[in-house]
Amino acid sequence: MYGWIWRHLPGNAWVRALISLLLALAIVYALFQYVFPWAEPLLPFNDVTVDNGLPAGSAMTEWR
C-alpha cells in the first residue's frame, strides 16, 4: 500500500518524501477536524444529561 503510493509519487526521493509528509499532515488534519468529531459522540463520554436531549418545552419550570 505505502510502497504503491511511494512509487506513484512524482519527483526524486526528496520530493517524494516532502509530498508524503504533506499527505500525512493533511490526513491528520482531516481526522482531527472532521472524522474524530464525528466519531467521538459515539463513545460514552458525552452522556452527561439525565434526559438525553428531550425536546425543550415540557413543563418543568415552576413559576411563582
Binding site: 444529561t49 434526559d51 428531550l54 425543550a56 418545552g57 415540557s58 413543563a59 418543568m60 419550570t61 415552576e62 413559576w63 411563582r64
Partner: peptide, 12 residues
C-alpha cells in the same frame, strides 16, 4: 437544561 428554571429563580 432549557426546561428548568432560570438562574436564581424559584424552581430548579
Amino acid at each position: 437544561y432549557e426546561r428548568t428554571a432560570g438562574l436564581g429563580e424559584r424552581g430548579n
